[in-house]
Amino acid sequence: AAFLFELLGMYEEAGKNMQQSGGRRHEHFEAFMASLRQHYKTERSVEFYADKLCISARYLNLICRELTEHSASECISDYVAMHIALSLITTDHSILELSEEYNFSTPSYFIRFFKQHEGMTPLQFRRRKGGKSRSGFAFPLLPEASLD
């Protein structure tokens, strides 16, 4: 629940920024986020999302930096990392299963990706069972039974 409130807060803040800039960029960012919510498990390429919006990757980056102070690539990676973290603490899927679910070429690349974002391996994160992630999102402590 805390994770979802943190995520909602981020989107509300981005929404305030978008209202100030308004117009076409706001529409493109909304469409980018909608596409990201739909394809985050299989696509992590800025070019993929830019093509879906019929804009250049450079323009998508400009929009994201203006509205969130992060590049499009960072937005995508952060979104994926948050969902991986949530999966790690709410499911008992193996690292291999999660790496396949999130379309990583190998489990070692999946582990490296997650470690770059959270500062620890997925297994270390799962064992931790709560606290705050490096990205600042709070994850509630889960009962032991949910990780077995």
Rank of each mutant, 00 (worst) to 15 (best):
A1G: 13
L4Q: 13
M10N: 13
Y11C: 14
Y11P: 00
A14Y: 15
A14T: 05
G15K: 07
K16M: 13
M18W: 02
Q19G: 11
R24C: 07
R24N: 10
R25H: 09
R25Y: 04
A31P: 00
F32Y: 03
F32V: 04
A34N: 09
A34S: 10
S35C: 09
S35Q: 05
Q38Y: 06
H39M: 08
Y40G: 05
Y40S: 08
Y40D: 05
E43D: 08
R44P: 01
R44Y: 06
S45W: 01
S45H: 05
V46I: 15
V46G: 01
V46H: 00
E47L: 13
E47T: 15
E47N: 13
F48I: 06
A50R: 00
D51I: 01
D51G: 09
C54S: 14
C54I: 01
S56N: 06
A57C: 05
R58V: 15
R58E: 15
L62H: 08
L62W: 05
I63H: 02
C64E: 00
R65V: 02
E66P: 00
L67I: 03
L67P: 01
T68M: 11
T68H: 03
A72S: 14
A72L: 04
E74R: 12
C75R: 02
I76Q: 03
D78I: 05
D78P: 00
D78W: 04
V80N: 00
A81D: 00
H83F: 12
I84C: 08
I84L: 11
A85W: 00
S87Q: 08
I89W: 03
T91G: 07
T91L: 09
D92V: 05
S94N: 06
S94L: 10
L96S: 13
E97C: 14
E97H: 13
E100W: 03
Y102S: 13
Y102K: 11
S105M: 07
T106M: 12
P107T: 08
Y109F: 11
Y109K: 09
F110A: 14
K115R: 15
K115A: 09
Q116V: 04
E118C: 09
E118W: 00
T121K: 06
T121W: 03
L123G: 13
Q124W: 01
F125W: 12
F125C: 10
R126A: 14
R127V: 06
R127A: 13
R127W: 05
K129W: 04
G130T: 04
G130V: 02
S133K: 03
S133M: 15
A138W: 01
P140Y: 07
L141R: 13
P143Y: 04
E144Q: 11
A145H: 07
L147T: 03
D148G: 12
